[in-house]
Design a protein around this nucleic acid. Sequence first.
DNA 1: GCTGAAAAGTTCCGGGTGGAACTTTTCGGT
DNA 2: ACCGAAAAGTTCCACCCGGAACTTTTCAGC
Lengths: 212, 212
Amino acid sequence: MTDEAPEKVSPVSGQGARGRYPKGILRRRQILDRAVEVYADLGFEGTSLRAIGEAIGVSHAALRRYFETREELFLEVLREKDRQALAEAHEAGHDRAPGFAAMAANYAQQVPGLMALRHSMVARALEPGNEHSREFFRERYRSLRRQALTLLEFARERGTVRADIPLDTAAALLIAALDGLSTQWLLDPGADMHAGMALLERLLETGTPRED
Amino acid sequence: MTDEAPEKVSPVSGQGARGRYPKGILRRRQILDRAVEVYADLGFEGTSLRAIGEAIGVSHAALRRYFETREELFLEVLREKDRQALAEAHEAGHDRAPGFAAMAANYAQQVPGLMALRHSMVARALEPGNEHSREFFRERYRSLRRQALTLLEFARERGTVRADIPLDTAAALLIAALDGLSTQWLLDPGADMHAGMALLERLLETGTPRED
DNA sequence: GCTGAAAAGTTCCGGGTGGAACTTTTCGGT
DNA sequence: ACCGAAAAGTTCCACCCGGAACTTTTCAGC
């Protein structure tokens, strides 16, 4: 691995380094934005650096000044969307109120191709090589579990969650269900993802069997 | 789509069609077997028809006599493994006794790359185009849900599953949890997939809170 | 046990990919 | 307001992929 990393984001201010020009900053955003659109149209294989470049009127090699590799570009797209989603959730107060089923809707109602892109990237992360992606997703899932755990702890304080279950395990289960159900739903819109999350939510509730 | 499909498996016995030669049948199996091994080493992108061909000492174009496309080849690998797994489960009697948590172990303890391959293929199935894969997985998940449903119905007859939940939804949830937890586990062996399945199993049980 | 028609397999071709070397543009410093 | 160094971008190259056209091998029928 020849470390020619062009991955200097901040001005560094080291001797003689000028940092990004305004134009460059704009371009970077443009690349990230267009990338998801192109992906939604052409899928993973179709979304080559050339394809993205063409979509914004620039040669493929230009993109390499902003992202060392296509993998890295896509990861950055996902990082960005995560940050955005987290901020929105925080702003809307979803990070205190439970409503797991509601999470589902949120989770799914995202930019068209985004969910599929995440799937593709996770798949690659599971393969040999791609350590970078694997590390990203490992950390991502840890973070998601932590967030879910926090929600569950809030809920337990309010007494709306069974007292006899380990919350960390429940957190992992919640995230897993979200993932798994959304997969089924994406493949087959007939599969009712909302119902699945609602059921799990009910199962976690303090033993109060009631019908919907 | 020029339908030049070489997808004749049985002898057909139509006028002047001779069907597969013994050598061809062997080759087909060899291709399927080697494909997963190569995948485990090289990942999705790395596993080109050429790479598989090279692994068995044959040119890439030879493979096309058996599988119209790489996609189709991989799908056949998955079909094969599914049939195999189903047969084994049936033989071991797992198709009547519940033990969902045990399913997890089974599900995960498969050929090295297989799980990752499935992930990759599902990811592609979610993208535009790839209707063939999408159809395959849609049907696969329907089938998995049916199987899970059957297990749940057995369990309910025995009174080991809460009476106040819709079993079809529970089936979807079960499969989803299996998928989602295994993803987390593959990314991070520290994530305890078994615990997650055990918890869900317990949550589905007739309300008998007990510690493990 | 020959024969020839279909099966099995190879060689070659057009096209697309990522990376290296090179050119043009931008803009901070004076 | 202009110079020049780094940023931004392009052209070119070596490689690999899948598909078409072609060749060799296998074996059912006589």
